[in-house]
């Protein structure tokens, strides 16, 4: 894969080996300007190693990686000026408060005088930390620290943001606020690469998702395209799962199902039965009509939608051996 002119982040056949272990193995993907790419995979899949390479903390054993057209190996200084990285762990400094922390990083990125003060002010406003300016970092909650860390990554207004597990350990409210910030940043045209285990969060903010396991990239695509792909063995035989809600007696409903060869029960509760049936919508409409004709009081007949979790489990489960 040649270097794309428009891509803000690009990995081309990147491999990172530690001895005989390939932490990242021949991984290629790209992120366009203003795009949010979710990077998902189980623990030890190679997400953080890939992000470390993009953040100019490590070098690939082979392959190439670029940020805004600059090689992370050959031009790390230029990459650093364009990139903000938020790691999964948060290293703190003793005897230093939030404002001093941001001030230090603003200076480190070359911001001087009023520009520096305004950058700190704006980042504090954006991350809702202004009232905590004088609070020692050691006294901050996990959520506050995450915000401060995001603020640090934003202080020099990078074009590219790399966020490693930004929502880990956050309460629901903090997560919502973080999601809101990510969406705002994406709207401003920044390119974001986000890894997370909270897949429902990713589905809401990401334009595309890349799935990695044991160092190998298994799938890359838009969230919709991945959600619409088959998620289990039965689906690959053109069957799908349908949730049927009814007000009839459960045993009566199950007895009726037994009379049919084209339907299987997947799970059942007192008013809902999930069945596996033909994926063809015409066949499904015939099935619904048959239910109605049999006097079953069905009030909801809905094809089950895949979640990102389903896609993740399907794609990663033993896919790489």
């Amino acid at each position: 894969m040649a270097r794309s002119v428009d891509a803000m982040i690009q990995l081309d056949k990147v491999t990172r080996s530690f001895g005989n272990t390939h932490a990242v193995d021949d991984v290629s993907f790209h992120v366009e300007a203003g795009e949010v790419l979710g990077f998902i995979g189980p623990n030890g899949a190679g997400k953080t190693t890939s992000m470390r390479i993009l953040s100019t903390l490590d070098t690939p054993t082979s392959g190439e990686a670029w940020v805004d057209g600059f090689s992370v190996v050959d031009d790390p200084d230029r990459v650093r000026a364009r990139m903000g990285w938020m790691p999964d762990g948060f290293g703190t400094y003793p005897n230093i408060n939030c404002e001093e922390y941001l001030d230090f990083f603003a200076r480190s990125y070359g911001l001087r005088g009023k520009n520096r003060l305004r950058a700190i002010k704006n980042v504090m406003g954006f991350t809702q930390l202004s009232q905590l300016a004088k609070k020692p970092i050691s006294g901050l909650s996990k959520g506050m620290k995450q915000r401060l860390c995001l603020g640090r990554a934003l202080i020099h207004n990078p074009k590219v943001l790399i966020l490693d597990e930004p929502a880990a350990g956050l309460d629901p409210r903090a997560r919502i606020e973080l999601r809101e910030m990510i969406l705002e940043l994406a709207n401003e045209g920044k390119s974001l690469l986000i890894s997370s285990h909270i897949l429902s969060e990713l589905a809401e903010v990401c334009d595309r998702v890349a799935i990695i396991e044991m160092g190998k990239l298994l799938a890359v695509g838009t969230v919709d395209s991945l959600l619409n792909q088959p998620t289990d063995q039965s689906s690959q035989n053109l069957t799908t799962q349908v949730a049927v809600k009814f007000i009839s007696d459960l045993s009566e409903f199950l007895d009726w199902i037994k009379t049919r060869d084209d339907v299987e029960v997947v799970s059942s509760s007192y008013d809902t039965v999930v069945i596996s049936c033909d994926a063809n919508h015409e066949k499904q409409s015939e099935l619904l009509a048959a239910m109605m004709n049999s006097k079953l009081k069905v009030f909801e007949f809905k094809e089950k939608q895949n979640s990102l979790e389903d896609v993740f489990l399907t794609v990663t489960r033993g896919a790489v051996q």
Binding site: A81, G110, L111, G113, K114, R118, A119, H156, N157, E184
Partner: peptide
């Protein structure tokens, strides 16, 4: 320009929600 990306701070934070 002190900024590494070669942009002014006004351009930068003119784009931020503030």
């Amino acid at each position: 320009n002190a900024l590494p990306v070669g942009e002014s701070i006004d351009e930068i934070f003119g784009e931020l929600p503030s």
